[in-house]
Design a protein around this nucleic acid. Structure first.
Length: 566
DNA sequence: CTGGGGACGGGGCCC
DNA sequence: TGGGCCCCGTCCCCA
């Protein structure tokens, strides 16, 4: 390390990427951890969504919009790619996992088409270069070649910048040299600076981030122009069998919002249709999952681009090329990237502790300077952070706005409530009633007067917990009416609820332990960050959430108890 | 298990 | 667009 770099050590592991790829390829061959199956005309290719998203612009877009894509609940999906020939798809997959493209020269055209359709730019470039020498022999017109080449070249220049484009030029020359026919097959090593290359965790990669991001609105405009100036179908191969299916994929290249996905996914499709009316969906590409193929950032970007002449929006939201997360705020992406690279450029001169952010270092320095800028007005306590003071003030006020919906224990801090809920203590017995509504708390029936259960107390507990975990749609049949539900839940609406309650009761409390988060999310009782914007300090406040929940549960229990007394 | 302090990462606002 | 500053939510650790 150089003395001027503050002791920052960077230890390269040049073999890491190769080993990583090798292991992934092993996993693919054995089907291990494969969460995506590509099919082409009957052939099936198990693969990994993350790899495909990393290598293919198409899949990047297809999966990019999934909120928290990683937690997609093991969203196993099948992607039918009949528009890509099986051999070509196999070759492209091999390339994705080995960085080497091995194809018979006779299949070059199919691979080129596949690479174009799936947005694997470097492979398309390489194939085009090879075919460029034999294009006329293949029957492709010079005009088509020019159109493709120019469009691709512009995309390359926009995506990777002039520097990368020039690097690719030199690499293309290498490809031409390497691209010798061996036993009627070709082995291509694509240029390392291609958009497919994974970002290295070096700071340089941060500066070159745009190259790994989905196309910007300008790029979309270029694509649109490329389609408008010439025949949009010019990229396709007229007369070829795959042209029909490929047509919509090219459509995707030009108008990303129209990526085919299953029509029944109503809410998000509706959202899409607001932006861009959905046209006929492609039969050649069917996703088995409910993936929405346009990321948030892209949606904003594309709408501005597709709008045609509309001034493009600020590009403040940026997508992290590593975790695909959308980072809001100008200049925040480099800060976020340090969470991936582990880079901690800000070092405390007093104790040597390093931080990823300057503002954190400044706060840390207060420990050394003794500065505690947040004094408590009620006691001599002083704090390093404003939020520490805020927490502390709740002690003085005695406010415990965060109440457990199950055992009604109240906490001063939300994280303590969450910690409490993650434990199982509140799932044992419901011994407390809500703090609100003393008449209910003292109703004397909480001691287990359920006659129809062998273990009445447990049954009551389960009822309460089950009610707490049930979404509104099940609880009130979607009607939201306060009509007192009869004990045995007669009627169609109540039948589903009864069955659900029975099922939950059979699960037992311990089996329910993992569900509160899920169902409470369904109840929208948890005021997440996403709710803040819509409802600042309003009905999503902890107190409001608690009250709403209490209303729900009390209504449930009250109704049932009233029926019981009859 | 709970209370409290501290660290960390993200977003908003401003320059 | 980048960076500073601040606030917030969340997580971890310790008593």
């Amino acid at each position: 390390m150089s003395p001027g770099e503050d002791g920052l050590i960077g230890i390269p592991f040049p073999e890491h990427s190769n080993e990583l790829l090798s292991h992934l390829n092993d996993q693919r061959r054995t089907g291990l951890l494969c969460d995506l199956t590509l099919t082409s005309r009957g052939a099936r290719y198990p693969t990994h969504r993350s790899v495909m998203a990393a290598v293919s612009l198409y899949f990047r877009r297809l999966f990019g919009a999934e909120e928290g894509g990683g937690e997609g609940g093991g969203g196993f999906s099948v992607c039918q790619l009949d528009c890509v020939a099986p051999d070509a798809l196999d070759a492209l997959l091999e390339f994705a996992y080995t960085a080497t493209l091995t194809i018979p020269s006779s299949g070059m055209r199919d691979v080129l088409r596949g690479a174009q359709l799936l947005g694997i730019q470097c492979v398309a470039d390489a194939c085009r270069d090879i075919l460029g020498e034999t294009a006329e022999a293949e029957g492709e017109t010079a005009e088509e070649q020019t159109t493709q080449h120019m469009a691709a070249k512009r995309m390359v220049e926009v995506e990777s910048g002039v520097e990368k484009a020039s690097r690719r030029k030199t690499d293309r020359k290498k490809v031409k040299k390497v691209g010798l026919h061996h036993n009627n097959s070709l082995i291509l090593n694509p240029p390392p600076a291609s958009p497919v290359s994974h970002p290295s965790p070096a700071s340089d990669s941060i500066r070159s981030l745009p190259s790994t991001q989905p196309p910007s609105p300008e790029q979309e405009e270029l694509r649109l122009k490329a389609g408008q100036n010439g025949d949009p179908r010019s990229i396709t191969q007229p007369g070829r069998g795959a042209a029909l299916n490929g047509g919509l994929l090219h459509h995707w290249l030009q108008e990303p919002l129209r990526i085919a996905h299953p029509p029944p996914v109503a809410p998000l499709n509706d959202k899409l249709s607001e932006d861009d009316d959905m046209e006929g969906l492609d039969d050649g590409m069917v996703m088995g999952s409910t993936s929405i193929p346009v990321s948030v950032a892209e949606r904003g970007a594309t709408t501005s681009a597709v709008g045609g002449g509309r001034k493009r929006k600020s590009q403040t939201p940026q997508q992290c090329p590593v975790c695909q997360k959308i980072i809001h705020g100008a200049g925040k992406l480099p800060r976020h990237m340090r969470t991936h690279t582990g880079e901690k450029p800000f070092q405390c001169s007093a104790c040597g502790v390093r931080f990823t952010r300057n503002d954190k270092l400044k706060i840390h320095m207060r420990k050394h300077t003794g500065e505690r800028p947040y004094p408590c007005p009620h006691c001599p306590a002083r704090f390093l952070h404003s939020y520490d003071l805020k927490n502390h003030l709740s002690l003085h006020s005695g406010a415990r706005p965060f109440e457990c919906p199950l055992c009604h224990k109240a906490f001063a801090r939300e994280d303590h409530l969450q910690r409490h809920r993650k434990g199982h203590s509140c799932l044992e017995l419901r011994t407390r009633r809500p703090r609100r509504g003393p008449e209910l708390a003292e109703d004397g029936r909480g001691d287990g007067s359920r006659r129809e259960h062998s273990n009445p107390l447990e049954a009551l507990s389960l009822q309460a917990h089950s009610s707490a975990f049930l979404p509104h749609a099940v609880l009130d049949g979607g009607s939201g009416s306060g009509a007192g539900p009869p004990l045995l839940f007669p009627g169609d609406v109540e039948r589903g609820r009864s069955l659900t309650l029975q099922a939950l009761a059979q699960l037992g409390p311990h089996r329910l332990a993992g569900y509160p988060e899920l169902f409470l999310r369904g109840l929208e009782l948890r005021g997440g960050r996403e709710a803040e914007g819509e409802d600042p300090g309003g009905t999503h406040s902890p107190a409001a959430q608690r009250d709403r929940w209490v209303d729900d549960v009390e209504e449930e229990i009250g109704d049932e108890e009233a029926e019981e007394e009859e």
